[in-house]
């Protein structure tokens, strides 16, 4: 394989589409892992004092986990779109490949960052639960405010993949 062939291979549309699918689950997943991890530490701290609050803080811990799921959905839709599940992967141009990467970017970046920030809001929410367990709904709402942007990012990614890119 010559160097030119190697570069040409890297810019194959299918490779780029797979890179997009990989990054969506990978990066958003790392973000969620961080967010859920942050919240989990705080939750464990509270549960060590008051084990009966387990169910409440578990909900708060789970909230930053959705970004990873959104990343996964994006990956799935990319694979679905290029025909991985129908058994025949479509021929893609380099431009189409880059379009997949562009389409995945919202959920990659926003998913990653919003998961971490949502994790921090969840931590703060857990301290609400520590003092006022009856205010769970408010703690959840604060965390849900952050999630809005992950939802919008997912939406943008999904629309671009499903409608924006013509194969």
């Amino acid at each position: 394989m010559t160097f030119a062939e190697f570069i040409g291979f890297l810019f194959d549309g299918r490779v780029l589409a797979f890179v997009a699918a990989t990054l969506a689950t990978l990066v958003a997943g790392i973000g969620s892992a961080k967010g859920v991890g942050l919240a989990g530490e705080a939750a464990a701290g509270l549960v060590s004092e008051e084990p009966e609050k387990f169910a409440q803080v578990l909900v708060l811990q789970a909230l930053p986990g959705t970004q990873g799921l959104y990343g996964f959905i994006t990956s799935f839709l990319i694979l679905y779109k290029i025909g991985v599940f129908s058994g025949k992967i479509a021929e893609l141009t380099t431009a189409q490949g880059f379009m997949f990467i562009a389409a995945a970017l919202p959920i990659i970046v926003v998913g990653y960052l919003s998961a971490i920030f949502q994790g921090r809001v969840s931590v703060a929410g857990i301290s609400i639960i520590a003092k006022k367990p009856e205010e769970l709904a408010k703690a959840i709402t604060f965390a849900a405010m952050v999630e809005t942007y992950a939802v919008l990012a997912l939406l943008a990614s999904v629309l671009m993949i499903m409608i924006g890119i013509k194969i």
Binding site: T66, L69, L77, L155, V158
Partner: peptide
């Protein structure tokens, strides 16, 4: 615009359910 989450979350449920079946 905030109600676009109705679409996004609906898709999220459906897609993951499909993935499990596949």
């Amino acid at each position: 615009l905030s109600y676009s989450r109705l679409l996004a979350l609906g898709l999220a449920t459906g897609v993951v359910a499909n993935v499990i079946n596949i």
